[in-house]
Amino acid sequence: MDITTLKSKKSLIWWTVIFTIFILLIFLPFYTQGYAVVLLISILVYVILTLSWVMFSGSTGYMSLAPAAFFGVGIYTSALIGKVFPFPITVLVGGMASFILAILVGALTLRLKGIYFAIFTFGLVMLIAYSLLFFEIQVTGTRGRFVIVMDYNTIYFYMLGIFMLLLLTTYLIKNSKYGLALRSIGQEEDAAAHTGVNVVGVKVMTFAISAFFMGAVGSVMATKLTYIDPFIAFSTTYSFMPVAMAIFGGTGSLYGPIIGAAILTYLEEILITKFAEVYMLIFGAILVAAILYLPDGLVGFIQKIWRRLMERNHVDT
């Protein structure tokens, strides 16, 4: 069997698996009740945030700690206009608000490299949260807002829709010439620029696309929170968790971040309910162990073992 038929057979299997999973996910709310859907919503939120983070930071190597900023902008957009517009429009506006913010911030800061970029993006989260707080106290004289409420199934379907769109976008970028440009920027940015890549343009655009999905998922998440204030919406957890989940799962593949986010979210749920007092301690220890012993993430680790097994088989036969 030559390599192309082998490849197409492999990708056919993959597509079948993905398709089956999506069918199962779509029909899931109709045969389970309550908790399963709530858990899946939590998982989907983090999967979307992590996958969006990997889209930009995974390939370019620019460590963004801005997810909470874009997520929060989505949440606040939903709180502000959710009662006025039909919900799909709200989600779109939430995404676009984050998209525009990312273009502004990106154009200003993507000249920064390494730790400076990370610190700035983290500062952005703080800046927006405290500015909003100042505005609410000084100008409007309120603290926080109530958001329109939706039932869990509707929230779930919105999240699933965003996830599918994100997966498709990531796949298309990865396999296009822009995916190649992103990887070249991550490996040797100067050389990329002198080979004709508009490095600032590619970086800002990808940063903004990833922000769009973070904002969109934020505006859906708002309806689950029901009440928000600046520190709920711009919680730094939403900046750090996607990074931790991406590293845990492995940034090298498309499914690494998804698996990482799913496992860690589930773990968090279990730890919170069973060991509420020490959950952060255990969670932290697991993360440290993952970073120390799984340098290429969980998926990288599994691939390594798989390869070793395959080699042994070859030797035996």
């Binding site: 010439k177 190649l180 004709g196």
Partner: peptide, 9 residues
Amino acid sequence: VLLGLHFGH
């Protein structure tokens, strides 16, 4: 090399 063909042209 492919990168050069994609973006240099």
